[in-house]
Design a protein around this nucleic acid. Sequence first.
DNA 1: TTGAAAGCGCTAACAA
DNA 2: TTGTTAGCGCTTTCAA
Lengths: 324, 324
Amino acid sequence: MAVTIKDIAEKVGVSVTTISRVLNNRGYLSDDLKKKVHEAMEEMNYQPNELARSLSRKKSNVIGLIIPDISHPFFGQITKHIEYYAYKHGYKLMLCNSLLNKKKEKEYIDLLRASQVDGIIMGSHTMSVKEYTSIKLPLVTLDRQISKSIPCISSDNYSGGVLATKLLLSKKCRKIAYLSGNLRLNLLAKQRHDAFIEQVSGKDVGFVVKQTDLNGFKYKEYENLVRELFEEHPDIDGVFASSDILALQVIKECRRLGKAVPEHVKVVGYDGIQIGGTDDLSTVEQPVKKMGELAVKYLLRQIAGEDMPLETILPVKLLEKGTT
Amino acid sequence: MAVTIKDIAEKVGVSVTTISRVLNNRGYLSDDLKKKVHEAMEEMNYQPNELARSLSRKKSNVIGLIIPDISHPFFGQITKHIEYYAYKHGYKLMLCNSLLNKKKEKEYIDLLRASQVDGIIMGSHTMSVKEYTSIKLPLVTLDRQISKSIPCISSDNYSGGVLATKLLLSKKCRKIAYLSGNLRLNLLAKQRHDAFIEQVSGKDVGFVVKQTDLNGFKYKEYENLVRELFEEHPDIDGVFASSDILALQVIKECRRLGKAVPEHVKVVGYDGIQIGGTDDLSTVEQPVKKMGELAVKYLLRQIAGEDMPLETILPVKLLEKGTT
DNA sequence: TTGAAAGCGCTAACAA
DNA sequence: TTGTTAGCGCTTTCAA
């Protein structure tokens, strides 16, 4: 059996309360006593039981993170930053991959609640608004606005859409495609689409929109999507892909078809993930780090009962590189 | 205050013991009673407190996962599979990103122990062997052999190295480079290097080895590494990169230098991550899914007190694609 | 088939 | 400055 606060108390010859006090550095304690207690802890290799502490305090210092797929670079990166800030503030992270599966997402929410997490960061969204508002737990959503009453951290998808489209227009593209992967992945991404439509409408350019709304992230599907695009519209000379991963597929397909990028086809991606191979890609960069930081920050504020902005829209940045 | 087992007990008019029994489906219970209890739970929206259960049972059903960097695609993918299997078996995942920082890794191990996790999957390794063997918690390491006494799941790095090198040799490369990123990232990856050396030695081909042992994953560093390689050895016509990410950098640099791939330079990567852009890359595929599955499986066995193989080396597969 | 009661390890009012 | 004591919400012997 592991050594407990009681063992330390006996060893030092004081009450458990006192040990608890030095553990939490609360109340008045003589330096001498503190030292003795710490020595005893050291000696007996004591580790406080966080479960017991959490139960008693009614605070676990754990936050749940629900995302669609940790293996997707965008979520991988944002998770990295979320973990960083959470750790910095003494919080642990419980990772939940929903795979955009409604049942699993729901089960995870219950599981997180049962596990007494102090709050949840939601980067997945498959359920109805009502279900979310009934979660009754500090909550912050990432890049998807569920309801006006739930704080949401996102980047400026609309501007991003404008920037990307304008870039292609300024490069004299004559027929532009908007390509998007799984829509449910990111509802706010719809704004990119809207921005695209607004920008190309009424101008003397052709345009096509192609999206897939498949479940999960099948890169194979992306490949088909791109292939179809060029088969149906061989005269495309500009592509706005709603993720860098998708943009890479486009570039690959162009290579296969012998279309030079950017000479014949200009490509602009979205996300700004810094994975090898994307660094020459023109793209709209989302402030992943800031998004992760604020998600944690606002969640912690909410946990602390303080208030925070309900809507945070961070600026995006156009990175013009070699593919346009 | 949330509703507890006690509230349910009062409502149904039985003792908490009985409620606990139906919760765990243990002992003799009349169907009628079960039904009434479940109804009451439903009605009062009862959620068992996992913290209390864990404390009492001395089992948390949480496993800790320590990896260097979740944003690295290889770890992102393996984490995805680990989460999948863990969830399937009723375990939650606590995500710990060590960033290859020794202090953080150590703190996380203590934190995990304090949090009473049932076991740890270690994909990061910065401390000394002694420190690991003193963890005294069910442990499985991923792709890095720490000690003979700690179960390790890895893929066959040696064979992978042989396969990749042989591929380049069979394609008549005259001067081959072995390129590796952070060594500490994966100590077993050294075997790829060894295999490379063995294969090229004594043959009529030139070879260079270039590695960086920097901390963290700076893609910028990768870029420099690759650039240097070609500056110092412009006559390189084959590259074995120890990760797909690195291989993508090589391909990009070749494009920049006007060297055609695979005509002038043949490139083979490692990992087999299916990120857009890598699907035309010749590479050695690691069985990520199987690795994640076995890591969880063997950890759970250990937790259950059963035994499991101490060394598991899974086969890798050469994927010959367009870059060789 | 059910209940009483003693924990699990720690916290926190209240008292001293 | 320190201790007593009653929980936190659940599990689990032991007894009925």
